[in-house]
Design a protein around this nucleic acid. Structure first.
Lengths: 145, 145
DNA sequence: CTATAACCTAAAGTTTGGTTTAAGTCAAGG
DNA sequence: CCTTGACTTAAACCAAACTTTAGGTTATAG
C-alpha cells in the first residue's frame, strides 16, 4: 500500500506540514515522488517515520535524527554505527528518566507535605517538622531532590 | 545568608540571565532588592528556585510555573490548590515517563536487532526474522513500541 | 575619590520545531 | 474537458526560553 501525505499524516497522527518540514530537513530521503511530484509514502516509510517519532519522543534534535536516518541510506556499511547510535540513545533516555524520577520524588514529597497541610489547614504547623517526624519512605523522596 | 544574582546563579548552576528572565516573567516575586535596586537572594529563595528548576525538569511551561509560584504568595488560602497542582504534576510526569519507557522499549529492541546484525555482518539475514525467532522478552519490547 | 567588577533595564537576537500563507500544480470524478 | 480537493514550494510567521547587546548604575577595594 502507498499513501499521499495527508493520509500518511493521519495514519501517523501528525500534521502534513510537519511531514513536509521533516522532508525539507532531510529526514525523509526514503520517500519517493510520483511523476507529478507528489510524495508517495509506502508502508515501510511509515515504519521509518514511527522510528523517527520514537526518537523525537526522546527529545533527540532533528539534526541528530537526520544523521541517524542518513546512516540507513548507506546500507550494511553503517551497521556498527547504527548499533552504537541506538546504545547511545539508550543512555540518553535512561538519563532523562533518572532526571524525571528525581523530579517525581520531589513532587511526591510535596504531595505528602500538602496532604498534611490541607489536614492541618495551614503550612504553619509543618514549619517545625523535623526529619524525625517524616516517615522513612517520604524522607527519602525529599533528600533525593 | 544572602547572595547577589551571580552567586545565586552559580549556586543553582544556572545563568544570571536566566534568573533575570524568570524574574521578568514573574517567577520570582519573592526576591527582594537592595536600596540601589540589586536583587538579593536569600537561602529560602534558592530553595524556591530549586523547586522551579524541578518543575522545569518536568517540562512545565514558564507561565504555568508562574501560576504555581503565585499561589504561594496567597498563603494558606491556596493550600488545597497547591496540593492539587502537585498531584496534577505527578500525573504529567508519570505520563512522560511512560512515553519515555515506550521509546526505550523500541530502542532496546533495536539494540538487540543490531547486535544480531553486527554479528551477521548484514541486516539481510534478519529480514526473514519471524516473531517466533525473537526471544519472548525482546518481542515484548518490539510490540510495545 | 576613583577604578572596576558586577549589577541594572530594555530591546534585539537566537534556536528549535514547527505552522501558515500565497500562488500555483496534480489527479480523480463527472 | 473541467472542476475541485489535495497536493506542491518558498517564504513568512510563531512561540518558548533564553542570550546578547548597549547603555547606564551600584558597590567595594585600594
Amino acid at each position: 500500500m502507498s499513501y499521499t501525505i495527508g493520509t500518511a499524516a493521519e495514519k501517523l497522527n501528525m500534521s502534513a506540514s510537519a511531514l513536509r518540514y521533516y522532508d525539507k530537513e532531510g529526514l525523509l530521503p526514503f520517500v519517493h515522488r510520483s511523476a507529478g511530484g507528489i510524495r508517495i509514502f509506502k508502508d515501510s516509510d511509515l515504519e521509518r517515520l514511527r522510528l523517527i517519532n520514537c526518537l523525537k519522543a526522546t527529545h533527540m534534535p532533528i539534526k541528530d535524527i537526520k544523521a541517524f536516518i542518513y546512516s540507513y541510506t548507506e546500507g550494511d556499511a553503517t551497521i556498527k554505527r547504527r548499533r552504537d547510535m541506538f546504545y547511545e540513545r539508550k543512555l540518553a533516555v535512561e538519563e532523562q528518566m533518572a532526571t524525571l524520577q528525581k523530579a517525581l520524588d520531589m513532587i511526591n514529597y510535596k504531595c505528602w507535605f500538602y496532604d498534611m497541610a490541607v489536614e492541618a489547614g495551614s503550612t504553619e504547623a509543618l514549619k517545625s517538622l523535623k526529619d524525625g517526624d517524616i516517615p522513612e519512605e517520604i524522607r527519602r523522596l525529599k533528600e533525593n531532590s
